[in-house]
Amino acid sequence: MTPRAKPVSGGAKNPDVWVVIPLYNEAPVIGGVIEELKREFANVVCVDDGSTDGSGAVAKAAGARLITHPINLGQGAALQTGISYARERAGTEYIVTFDADGQHRIEDALGMLKLARSKKLGVVFGSRFLDNRTNPGWAKKVVLKTAVWVTNQTTGMKLTDAHNGLRVLSVDAARGINLQQDRMAHATEIVVQIGRTKLPWEEFPVEVIYTDYSKAKGQSLLNSVNILFDLIVN
């Protein structure tokens, strides 16, 4: 893989950062998410994971670099494709992972980036459980807390929120990531692989905005069974 130059227009914001968005059937919201991101980040890459609702075209029109999976592979696979793309661009220092459904705040991403830069951190994880801004509801809380518990048991790290799509990775950390879990268990897998790089990490309090749209697509209790199974079974 030869590093390739990505032309960056003069005065662009955060030219050393790539925002990676795994995208699957989010046509109603993805355009707005990208337009907002583009105000702060010059480089946004969307990995369209075989959407059937024209999400890819919307993302491209909104100004994102679009990469298209020929078939639907799962969120973890899309994330890995985006990370692989971003880390081979010349000049990349940080990669921000961001969900397509508009549940993250750009201010949080900027804050995390600032923290990573100032403390030379390998990774900053967003956590919705460090303050009281986010109220996920009890069912979701049970799922998320179970996921965190499993993650902490597997990795020996002490996270408060494991399945948060907002993360900042240094390019060194990104090089240590090779996600095999195509489905939701990738969130734990990413923590495992970051743990192996021995790079310093921190958590950062973020707010997750539960819109009606993201609520309807949220993870169910049953899906946490899938996550557990995928992690335990080799």
Binding site: I67, P70, I71, L73, A77, S84, Y85, Q180
Partner: peptide
Amino acid sequence: NYKRSVTASRTTSALARELALTEAR
């Protein structure tokens, strides 16, 4: 059988990813 199918889907993923990245390059 389950294990075989997991291996197969990982191979497919790697292949599809390379295809997507090659297209981007």
